[in-house]
């Protein structure tokens, strides 16, 4: 079953009055359990694509299906719920709520989902253990390194038990060791739990590990290849 299906997506922005074609007739299907990366130079439309998949942005033309639900048919509160329950997010930076501890950040999303306290605590602990931060649970984001922050973000993204995780340049601000560590964790979660990951990146470290590489150029899919991760 495809978790994400894009049909002839086009997106045109107005930039200082001039139309900019960010996405041009993109069609794409992503199956459950994929570890896919979308690559391309800046301005090729990667972020726009992720925003459209998550329903934060809407396409100028074409349809988006998430788990076979057509996004433009959803009401805004249904969209919020879709993001809350079915999509996990890892951003490039500023992922966490600065005033909350690592554990609270992970619990936060489950709290929004309305899960009971015991369940929240248990799951937050498991997830933080899984990303190797079991001993840093009570620290605040400012007390954690960039790599640790991103790992908390991954734990939080998984906390909602989403259908897939969207990660927008998750390694952009990390050094090599931290980036490798983060990727290893995500790879393991993909492998062990079958979690679907979709990255946008131009970081070769990420690309090397991807199972599928979709290359965007000027808003079009230039190539879409299956790859053997090293």
């Amino acid at each position: 079953m495809s978790v994400i299906r894009l049909q002839n997506i086009s997106k045109i922005y107005q930039d200082h009055g001039l139309p900019v074609r960010a996405l041009d007739d993109v069609s794409l299907e992503i199956e459950a359990g994929e570890f896919t990366t979308i690559v391309g130079p800046s301005g090729s439309g990667k972020s726009t694509l992720l925003n459209i998949i998550s329903g934060l942005d809407s396409p100028t033309s074409g349809q988006v299906f998430v788990e076979e639900r057509q996004l433009d048919k959803l009401k805004s509160c249904e969209l919020v719920n879709l993001r809350l329950h079915r999509i996990g997010f890892v951003f490039q930076a500023y992922n966490l709520i600065p005033v909350l501890t690592a554990q609270e950040n992970v619990e936060f999303i489950m709290l929004l989902q309305g899960q009971p306290k015991i369940e929240r605590e248990k799951r937050a602990r498991e997830l933080l253990d899984a990303v190797g931060l079991g001993d840093q649970m009570r620290r605040r984001p400012t007390e954690l390194s960039g790599g640790q922050q991103q790992r908390v973000a991954v734990a939080r993204a998984l906390a909602s038990m989403p259908a897939f995780v969207l990660a927008d340049e998750p390694t952009a601000n990390l050094d090599s060791a931290a980036a490798e560590n983060l990727l290893t964790i995500m790879e393991r979660l993909n492998h062990e739990k079958g979690m679907t990951f979709i990255f946008s990146t131009h970081d070769q470290r990420v690309v090397k590990r991807a199972h599928r590489i979709i290359t965007l150029e000027d808003g079009r899919i230039a190539s879409d290849v299956k790859a053997d991760p090293h």
Partner: peptide
Amino acid sequence: NREFGMLIAIGMKRGS
């Protein structure tokens, strides 16, 4: 501003 954007993106309602 960014924090609010992130909160909305991960599924927090504006009302909250």
